[in-house]
Simulated scan of single mutants.
Amino acid sequence: MSQLSKTEQVLREMKQYNIDLLALNEIRWKDVGQETLDHGYVLLYSGEDNHHQAGVGLMKSPAAYRTMLKWTPINERILFARLATTHTKLSVIVCYAPTNEADDDVKDGFYETLQPVTKDIPKHDILCVVGYLNAKVGADRKYYPEVLGPHGLGQINENGALLVDFVLSNDLVVGGTLFQHKNVHKYTWKSPDGSMRNQIDHFVIARRWRTSLLDVRWYRGVTTNRVTCS
């Protein structure tokens, strides 16, 4: 499927599910920029200079775009945007983390880049970190009850431990572990043959805004995961 047809598919799903903000991962667009799409939707993207690999993006409805205050392409794995809301500002960090099998220096480098972006966000903002974190945080929350809910899946892996450390150090919570759903609505990835399923995409929110998060779930048959906030 071409980049254009993928974008058109995502745009249809945004309209179908009434989504105002949509984080995109592995979009494989070069460079950085802003693209105006049909019906006033806008795609912000941050990619690499010379390769159609990795890449992150944030697609906005016309209403969401009108509230944008600033956005910053950090690199091919991290993009930041800040928007105005009725009560406060919303800061969104879109992420595409290295895989669990990546070299340790690559994984550590990702979080070393992500940490200062997070720390620079004003404390009163609603902070959300969202995307393909490539991390399994698991179902056992006994060591991390302050950042994980009771509805995770599987066993924590190395990338999951890195994510938990990041969440702990920044007073965040992992939203997908907070809400009770059938497992089929928690899995965010499956192998091509369907034999393996994991929860490795995540929506992370500042703990002080935890009650503003109403739901996190995956919808079968679509390319998007939907998060509902008040």
Rank of each mutant, 00 (worst) to 15 (best):
S2E: 05
S5E: 13
S5F: 12
V10G: 04
V10L: 10
I19T: 07
L21D: 03
L24I: 14
I27W: 01
R28N: 04
W29Y: 13
K30L: 13
V32K: 04
L37D: 09
D38Y: 15
N50L: 11
H51Q: 13
H52E: 14
V56D: 03
W71Y: 14
I74V: 13
T88N: 11
C95Q: 05
C95P: 03
E101R: 13
D103C: 09
V106Q: 15
D108G: 07
G109Q: 05
F110T: 01
T118P: 00
T118Q: 10
K123A: 11
D125N: 07
I126Q: 00
C128A: 12
G131D: 02
Y132R: 01
V137A: 04
Y143R: 13
P145R: 14
H151Y: 14
E158V: 05
N159Q: 12
G160I: 03
L162F: 14
V164C: 13
D165P: 05
L168R: 08
L168P: 04
S169T: 08
S169N: 09
D171R: 14
V174M: 06
N183G: 08
Y187C: 02
G194V: 06
M196D: 12
N198G: 00
R208L: 10
W209T: 06
R217A: 02
W218E: 08
Y219W: 08
R220M: 06
N225R: 12
V227C: 12
